Simulated assay, not measured.
Amino acid sequence: MAAIEPNPKICLHLRSNSFRTAPHPLVSQFEEHLNRLKSSESASSASSLSHKVCGLQDLQDSSDKLLQLSTTQQVLAQDWSQKCVDELLDGSLRLLDICSTAKDCLVQPKESLYEVQSAIRRRGTEAALTVGAANYLASRKNVKKAIRMALGNIKGIRNDLIVKENDMLSMLKEAEAVTVSTFESLLCFISNQKGQSKQSRWSAISKLMQPKRVACDSQERGTSEFEKVDAALKSLIRQKHASTDNLQGDLENLEMFIQDLETGVECLSRKLIRTRVSILNIFND
């Protein structure tokens, strides 16, 4: 008797309750990472942001492993329309664009930050310190402008992230939504934005994620590393003779935060590229 080929849809069991078989371990792993990010506390501090970026790295690793399964590839290649493929590829490009913006917004202030630190360590003149502070604040102004544009773009893509079905496309779109929301929290944190309307900002994506809070909406969070340095340097420029004792510690904390996030976002970028390549390979074979 000829062997009966297993149905790849049943083997993979993409979160359908109609099958009695257990989901593939990689599907369970993917959902575990996804649910952990969706249910985690708002990224309203440097440490929580770093933790969520690491969580996104784990989610992308899990996504890529899932895409490497032959059963997954069969399901995608056989059942997906060109529209579904385009949606997924467009989404991966959006994530890479947002990721690139986040990297730029972390890198841009670094040079002027070093300039201020150097002036303090060398006990430079007030003029040198003031110039360094002014350069840093100018860089921050440019960063905030770029972030406003990025947040506007994010607002424009939320409707594309609403999940309607329990299938592989929806799973990957959920991952995209969680990634977008974390980047949004990061960008809001960098630009010191808060107090915006939760209803208007999250009306679409909340249908998917139902987050407890988001960083931009938090009125109770403490002062961020960026806020502390911004305020201190503005005060220094106004007062001329302001003490730099506390400023040095704030600058060092901000430097470590930027370095930590920059490393994490760079690693995440590589993983996003790898996942995109995996998707392209499935549909180009």
Rank of each mutant, 00 (worst) to 15 (best):
C216M: 11
S18I: 15
K240A: 11
E165K: 14
S63D: 01
K207W: 09
K52A: 14
E126A: 10
S191P: 00
S206W: 04
R94I: 12
L137C: 10
L66V: 02
S206G: 04
W80S: 04
E252H: 05
V265D: 00
K228I: 07
S200Y: 02
H13Q: 07
E266H: 03
I120A: 01
V265Q: 02
R270Q: 13
N166P: 00
K52N: 12
K52W: 02
F283H: 05
S39A: 13
N281R: 14
I154S: 04
V85G: 02
S42A: 15
D167A: 10
L254W: 02
L66P: 00
T101G: 00
L37C: 06
N192I: 07
T21I: 15
R270A: 12
K234S: 12
I237L: 13
I162E: 04
Q78V: 08
G156L: 10
K234T: 08
L261N: 02
C188V: 05
A150I: 09
S218C: 15
E225S: 14
S181W: 00
T72M: 10
I154Q: 08
R20L: 13
E220Y: 09
A150Y: 07
D104C: 09
N35Q: 15
R36N: 12
H33A: 14
E225G: 10
T244S: 13
D64V: 05
S181C: 07
D79T: 12
D58F: 06
I162Y: 06
H33E: 15
N281S: 10
F283G: 02
G55H: 11
A134K: 12
L247N: 01
S200V: 06
L187M: 15
N153C: 11
C99D: 09
Q210Y: 07
L67I: 02
I162R: 11
K144F: 09
A102V: 15
D90N: 14
E115M: 13
P25M: 08
S218R: 14
S39T: 12
E31V: 05
T244R: 12
F183V: 14
I279Q: 06
Q196C: 03
T179P: 00
V75C: 15
E41F: 08
P8M: 09
H33P: 00
E5I: 13
R158L: 07
F226P: 00
P8K: 10
K9V: 11
E32W: 00
L161T: 05
I273Q: 06
T72G: 03
I162L: 14
I120L: 07
A77R: 13
M168Q: 02
L233A: 06
V163S: 05
S45N: 12
W80T: 01
I237N: 06
N166F: 01
H51T: 12
A46N: 04
R148I: 14
A77Q: 12
Q74T: 14
E227P: 03
L187A: 05
V178Y: 01
N253T: 07
D86M: 09
W202V: 08
T263C: 06
A43V: 04
E262G: 07
L37N: 06
V116H: 03
L67K: 02
R276T: 09
P8C: 08
K65L: 11
L67C: 03
L26S: 01
E165H: 14
S62V: 01
G55M: 11
R121G: 00
L49R: 09
A119D: 02
M1K: 12
